[in-house]
Computed example of a mutant assay.
Amino acid sequence: MLLAWVPAAASAQEPRVSCASLGSQEAAEQAVSVDPSLLPLLDRDGDGVPCESGVPSPSQLGVYIVVGAVLVGVGSLALLGLQRRKSRSEEETLEARVARLQGSLTDAAGVVAEIEREVASRQELLAKLEEDARRVRALTGMDSAEVDAVTQALNGQLAQLEKRSLRGSIVLSSIFYVLGIVSGVLTNIFVS
C-alpha cells in the first residue's frame, strides 16, 4: 500500500501536461474534456479557458502573419506618403540653404576660435609648470652652503618686511589716535 502511494505523490508534484507540450489551445481543450483535473494546470488566469495565452494553432498563426503583413504594408505606405508630402512642402530654396550653411560656418568658426584660446591658455600653463619644475630641480640640487645662503637672504628680507610692517602699524595707530582726539575735541565744541 505504501509503495503505491509514493509514485502518486511524486507525479502530483511534477506537472504531467503543460501548454507547451500540447502545442495549441484546441489540444488543451480536448485534454481538459478528457481529464478535467488538468484544468488547474493549464488555466493560469483561472477563467476556465486552458492555454489561452499559449502557442497559437497553425491556422491562428497564419491569420496573425497575414494581418501583420497587411498592417506593415499599410503603415509603410502611409509613412511614405507623409514623407513625400513633407518633402514637397519643405523644399528649401538655394538662398535659404546658403544662409543656413553660412550660419553653420559662423558657428564652427566660433568653436574653432574658442578651442584656439583654450590651447593658448594651456600652453601658458605648461610654460609656467615647466618653469616651476626647473626651479624645483635647481632647489633640490643645492648643497648645504647654498641652502644656508638662501635662508639668510630670505631671513634678511623678512626682517626688512617686519620693520616696514611695524613702522606702518605705528603710523596708522598714530593717525587714528590723532583723529580720535580731534573728533573728541570737535564733539565737545559743537555739543556744548
Rank of each mutant, 00 (worst) to 15 (best):
L71P: 04
L71C: 03
L71H: 02
V72M: 02
V72R: 05
G73N: 10
G73Y: 07
V74S: 02
V74F: 01
G75H: 01
S76T: 13
L79R: 14
L79Y: 13
L79N: 13
L80G: 15
L80W: 15
L80M: 13
G81R: 13
G81C: 11
L82R: 14
L82D: 12
Q83S: 15
R84W: 06
R85Y: 00
K86R: 15
K86L: 12
S87R: 04
S87T: 01
S89K: 15
E90P: 00
E90D: 02
E90C: 02
E90T: 06
E91L: 12
E91Q: 11
E91M: 10
E92Y: 03
L94A: 10
E95F: 05
E95V: 08
A96W: 00
A96T: 00
A96G: 03
R97Q: 02
V98D: 00
V98K: 05
A99K: 05
A99Q: 08
R100K: 05
L101W: 05
L101F: 02
L101Y: 01
Q102L: 06
Q102Y: 00
Q102M: 05
G103P: 02
G103W: 00
S104E: 13
S104K: 08
S104T: 07
S104I: 05
L105Q: 03
T106K: 07
T106W: 02
T106Q: 07
T106E: 04
D107H: 13
A108Y: 14
A108K: 11
A108I: 11
A109M: 08
A109N: 06
V111H: 09
V111P: 09
V112S: 10
I115F: 15
I115P: 07
I115A: 14
E116K: 15
E116T: 15
E116N: 14
E116A: 15
R117Q: 15
E118C: 04
E118S: 09
V119N: 02
V119C: 00
A120W: 01
A120Q: 07
A120T: 05
S121N: 01
S121A: 08
Q123P: 03
E124Q: 10
E124R: 13
E124A: 13
E124K: 14
E124I: 10
L125H: 06
L126H: 10
K128R: 12
K128G: 09
L129K: 11
L129V: 03
E130L: 09
E130K: 09
E131I: 04
D132I: 12
D132N: 07
D132R: 15
R134C: 06
R135G: 10
R137L: 09
R137S: 11
R137G: 06
A138H: 03
A138I: 08
A138T: 07
L139W: 07
L139Q: 11
L139I: 06
L139M: 13
T140H: 14
T140V: 15
G141C: 07
G141A: 13
D143W: 01
S144T: 15
E146W: 06
D148N: 09
D148I: 08
D148Q: 09
A149N: 12
A149I: 03
A149K: 11
V150K: 11
T151M: 12
Q152H: 11
Q152D: 11
A153P: 06
A153S: 12
